[in-house]
Simulated scan of single mutants.
Amino acid sequence: MKFSDNTTQSAEYLRQAIPLMVKYNIPPNPLNYALWYTYVSKKVPSLNYKIDQTLDTYGTCPSLLGEQLFREHVISDDLTDSEDTKKQLLALTNTLTEQVDHAAEHTSYYGSVLEDSLVELNNSEGSPQLSNIISRLAENTASITESTHLFQQQIMEAQAEIIALKEELKRTRLDARMDPLTGLFNRRVFDTELEQVTGSNNHAKATLIMIDIDHFKDFNDEYGHLMGDKVLQYFGKLLKAECQEPILPVRFGGEEFAILLIGKEKEEAAVLAENLRKKIQAIRIKQKKSGKVISSITASFGISQWVQAETAEQMIERADQALYLAKESGRNQVQTAA
């Protein structure tokens, strides 16, 4: 999206946007400024419709959802242009490489022909002057061939670097927020989302599920850390599959996971937790070496629903207390904080 507002109009849009961001506890970062600037400008009706729906449902606009709206409605054209430019650049590089290959083949062939011709001339009684001319041509052709091969190598290295940088950029963007083992978002993302919800004064609803794998240390001691990692990876896949957006599953730390349900009541969280508990209990992992089937994996769950004026730490503490009760009551069960 291109912004072409004059200074006066831009200032007016910001004057309208900032109070809304404060009202709905929106983090003051450049992305959100642009998102809410666009919202108050009413230039993208589909964006306004989505934000209004989000505010009605959650009482705020969660950061991850805000990023998604920003990509889809504010810079979608720019992203398309950027991706097209990358594709065109890679295509151009590929074409140039092919052309250089082709030129190198012809130059090499031309050099071979001249060298053969020089040998024939030297073996004949031809003019010495003509022989010198052919000799210089052969030398120059060899130089051209070497330069062309060098240029070809540089082009190939540049192409590989472009691809590597593109992949590195993609990894860097994800690494700061992703847990590499499970593929879930990490504690950093969780804290940001929860702080935003609990800092809202708009009667937002939110429920937290804390999950802990039962006897995980004993499991690692008996079966090894590699098998333990497989269990954690399975947890990541299961939570991703069962927690549809905007439900946010994260690896909280170690063998502990958390699920933040924005806009949901504790009853809905309890249904999700019970469904996950049953699927975790049904996990069967076969050891490759021994062929032994491991079927002793379970998890305990603690749930708390956010209470107005409660801090994020207090909400987590109540969920932890419910989780502790689940463990003290025999594990492999769901407990909800009062």
Rank of each mutant, 00 (worst) to 15 (best):
K2A: 08
S10L: 12
E12D: 11
Y13N: 07
R15E: 13
Q16M: 11
A17C: 03
I18D: 05
P19A: 06
K23A: 06
Y24W: 10
P28I: 01
Y33W: 03
K43D: 12
L47K: 03
L47A: 04
N48E: 13
D52T: 13
T54R: 02
T54E: 04
D56M: 11
D56S: 15
T57V: 04
T60V: 10
R71T: 04
D78L: 13
D78F: 10
L79Y: 01
T80F: 10
T80E: 12
D81G: 02
D81A: 12
H102L: 14
A103D: 07
A104M: 09
E105D: 10
S108T: 14
G111Q: 12
G111M: 08
S117E: 11
L118G: 06
E120T: 10
L121W: 10
S124A: 13
S124G: 15
I133K: 05
S135E: 09
T141W: 01
S143T: 14
F151P: 00
M156C: 03
E157Q: 13
Q159T: 13
A160T: 09
A164Q: 14
L169P: 01
K170L: 12
T172P: 00
A176V: 15
R177D: 10
L181V: 00
L184S: 00
R188L: 08
F190P: 00
D191N: 13
D191A: 11
T192C: 07
N201M: 07
N202K: 07
M210K: 09
F216W: 06
E222S: 10
Y223V: 05
Y223T: 04
G224L: 03
L226R: 08
D229M: 03
K230L: 10
Y234S: 11
G236A: 04
L239P: 01
E245H: 09
E245S: 12
P246C: 08
I247C: 03
L248Q: 02
V250L: 07
V250K: 04
R251P: 00
F252V: 05
I259N: 03
L261C: 10
K264S: 12
K264V: 13
K264A: 14
E268Q: 11
A270S: 11
V271L: 07
A273V: 02
Q281F: 11
I283K: 06
K286R: 14
S290T: 15
S295E: 14
S296L: 00
I297E: 06
S300T: 02
G302D: 02
Q308I: 09
A312S: 15
M315N: 07
A319W: 05
D320H: 02
Q321H: 13
Q321W: 03
Y324T: 08
K327Y: 07
R331A: 02
R331T: 02
V334K: 01
V334C: 05
